[in-house]
Structures are given as structure tokens and as C-alpha cells.
Design a protein around this nucleic acid. Structure first.
Length: 152
DNA sequence: GCCAACGTTGGC
DNA sequence: GCCAACGTTGGC
């Protein structure tokens, strides 16, 4: 069982938007980075991840979502009208993939990046060492530490 | 709005 | 396969 972190700009797509979707579920499409794609392809149904707000005030972890389907081809890559269109990705040989994710819960308050940076045991977290990666693996230990912050 | 970090592209 | 040029991400 692995844990993950999914980034989104809340002005573009946030937890309320996810909650409003049919079945509170959406394909995590638009990812155009190979490392992030490979992480999604390794995800299993039932695994959970943090929903992270980037370019936000404040940026930070806003809640939890769950993987509800294995990675499948990202349809937005095939659509010339989509901002995520990629002519190099074809139905025969798709380049980009996405899992479907479901709303689980929103934290009462966003756990800010500033707060996370202050915790020594989180200093190796991918969020802090490879800040640009938009889909990340979170270690179980990190996952648990972050949940204990909710009780403070 | 700036800019550091870093991923991608394409010429050679 | 190298690497310069360029584009994007995301914190501040």
C-alpha cells in the first residue's frame, strides 16, 4: 500500500469542485510529466493521496482523495480543443495516462507548506526536495506524521 | 511579477 | 549522446 500527493491549483480545481462531480470522482487528467505519469501507472485501486493546493494562499495539503481506477489513457491528450492536447499521444499508442480519484475528506484547515517545512522528520519528503513534481509518492511515515498534525 | 529549479526539444 | 535554448512550475 502506497500513499501519494496530487497537486492542483485551487483556482483551477479544488476539493469543492471534486465533491461536486458525479460520484465525487474525476480523472486526474492533464499531467504531462513522465515521472508523474509513471507514478500514476503504479497506483492501485483503494490507495489514498493528499490533495495539495499549489500557487495558493497558503499553499498546502487540503485533504485526502482515493484512487478508484487504475491508470488509463488520458483522453484530453487526444482532443485538439483541449489545452492538454498532445498530437504525439494517439489512441493506438497513448503517451499520457490518468487514474480516477474520489473525494474522501477535506481537512478543517489547510496544512500549509510553511508548517510542513518546520517539521524535521518531513525534510526528506518529495514535496520539499522535488517541489515541481505534480504527482508524488508519500512515505507511510510521512503520511502518518501529517495526520497527527490535524490533532494539534 | 520575479526567478530558481528543472524538464523538454532539437540541432549537431 | 551532448548541450544550449527554451518553456513551465511554483514559492515568494
Amino acid at each position: 500500500m502506497s500513499y501519494y500527493l496530487f497537486k492542483s491549483e485551487p483556482d483551477v480545481f479544488n476539493l469543492n469542485d471534486l465533491k461536486a462531480k458525479p460520484n465525487q470522482t474525476t480523472p486526474w487528467d492533464g499531467v504531462r510529466n513522465y515521472q508523474a505519469r509513471n507514478i500514476m501507472r503504479a497506483m492501485k485501486v483503494g490507495e489514498r493521496g493528499f490533495f495539495y493546493y499549489s500557487n495558493a494562499k497558503p499553499s498546502g495539503i487540503a485533504g485526502v482523495i482515493e484512487v478508484v481506477s487504475l491508470a488509463k489513457p488520458d483522453e484530453t491528450a487526444f482532443d485538439p480543443k483541449s489545452e492538454y492536447f498532445d498530437p504525439k499521444s494517439t489512441a493506438d499508442n497513448p503517451r499520457w495516462f490518468c487514474v480516477e480519484v474520489k473525494f474522501i475528506h477535506a481537512f478543517p484547515k489547510v496544512i500549509s507548506l510553511e508548517t510542513l517545512k518546520k517539521i524535521p522528520s518531513l525534510s526528506e519528503m518529495t514535496l520539499l526536495t522535488h517541489s515541481r513534481l505534480s504527482v508524488q509518492v508519500v512515505k507511510e511515515k510521512e503520511w502518518n506524521i501529517i495526520h497527527t498534525l490535524l490533532n494539534v
